[in-house]
Design a protein around this nucleic acid. Sequence first.
DNA 1: TCGACGTCGGAATATTCATTCCATCGAGAT
DNA 2: ATCTCGATGGAATGAATATTCCGACGTCGA
Lengths: 280, 280
Amino acid sequence: MMTIDDNDALPPRDFWSLRNRMVSRKDTLPKRLAQVAIYAVANPDDVAFGTAASIAEKAEVQPSTLVRFAQAFGYQGFSDLQAVFQDRLRDRTSNYSERLSSLRSHVAGDSKSATLFAGFCKAAERSVGSLRERVQVEQIDEAAALLAKAETIYLIGQRRSFPVTSYMSYAFGKLGVKSILVGSAQGSDPETLSFAGPRDAAIAISFTPYASATLNYARQVNEAGTPLVVITDSPFSPLIPKIGVWFEVVEADYEGFRSLSASMALAMTLTVAVAEARRT
Amino acid sequence: MMTIDDNDALPPRDFWSLRNRMVSRKDTLPKRLAQVAIYAVANPDDVAFGTAASIAEKAEVQPSTLVRFAQAFGYQGFSDLQAVFQDRLRDRTSNYSERLSSLRSHVAGDSKSATLFAGFCKAAERSVGSLRERVQVEQIDEAAALLAKAETIYLIGQRRSFPVTSYMSYAFGKLGVKSILVGSAQGSDPETLSFAGPRDAAIAISFTPYASATLNYARQVNEAGTPLVVITDSPFSPLIPKIGVWFEVVEADYEGFRSLSASMALAMTLTVAVAEARRT
DNA sequence: TCGACGTCGGAATATTCATTCCATCGAGAT
DNA sequence: ATCTCGATGGAATGAATATTCCGACGTCGA
């Protein structure tokens, strides 16, 4: 016979209630059960499809622990609990568009922040959408080839574009591609860039109103024969290089602040494409 | 022994290839197998979750027919085929081998860079989508109120999160909100943060694997009584503050690189919401 | 009309699975 | 130090499942 825990007699039937309960009860749970809770929250898909044995192995517990876990939350057994995880995936795909619109209506009448939030989300999505339409694969290939040949890749971006270049810098570092980030608070940028030559390459990112430093750096570098990959927002941008490739990225904005999603997605594509090209 | 059909030796490993093959082969299939094909195309979810017996009943065939069906398409058995249907529903944020192949069949050009590009775009969109589902407006209001009261807002983020904090820093600057960016290459971060007190606030952003410096800074600041707004990827994150608000943001990743779209959208929402709150 | 082959249904089987049970371990209280 | 009780690991069990096998049926060609 089992004593009645602090669990309710009726276990949660929908995933989010269960998830909340797992989160809130985690600290009062025995070691192994807490381990299961953490795994289940982090990998709900595996719980939905796996067998007790396979899940137990990944979570590093015994299968019997899974059964105990389920019972601790008021379920009859593991299978009973697993059904909740499966239901979550069932209506996720079938009601996806429906869910989206229902959320929009929630948002509609609410507070100012709800409108903000919806606005920025929408801006992000629209930006990526327009990116898809505009960018041609050949451009990416060309840019990647150009960058892959370079000894050093200089990353030029200020203000709003700096987050993009800094992420590229981080990613290049992880991928073992030599790059130098220009535009941070140190004043040594002009000297740094004077080392750039035809055997190197540079990536410059800027949108209206173009930061003058970025323009100057890009021009300086390009005139030294260094090929440029440019991400900007207009075919008439002063940034468009004599030698190199350029991408037109139009970021939707909201309340005067541009989304960076499209630039980020393109930047990541270029970054990984370069690493791929180097590998071969 | 079985005769070799027109099926390939290697069965499709992603759902869409399989689906196409089911559609195209349907007319040449025996009656019951065609029946299975029709049911499987119409109810892929049921195939993913059901047992051979339950599916067989709904499709009005025998369980053994399902096995034969699977073998007719080159699979070893029903379970083997079922795995393909399950993978379709999985949205594991890191399973990129499957995602690669599934993208290949969708995307027109099949060059490596086209796949990359589509992958990063999709990751961005999915991230924003999941952000919409997860975030509650009250959290945003709470965080904005908390930040609006602060004298100085400290921005803590390293590595992958640094682009986000640096964008917030830029936006706060444009909006006339006093903020200090921590985590750049200068070594003075600990001293900078020691000035933070209960009248200030801090924003900390970190995802697994959590950068240890971010963890330390956040803890230090919070124990000094400074309320924290945290953006992280799990309710069990060590970053979750005693005083303050936290947001769970799950970024889809592709080829090991996370999208930043969701974090960016949320960060912008918070930034502008704070400025709005200050104005009144 | 007869034979042959492919298809199908359903029982038999072998495998995999969830669950239960029990011995052991460890922490906290007396 | 001893006892107690909950937690845990791991083997045992029994149920459920996928798969195989074989006889029957229908169709097509001779």
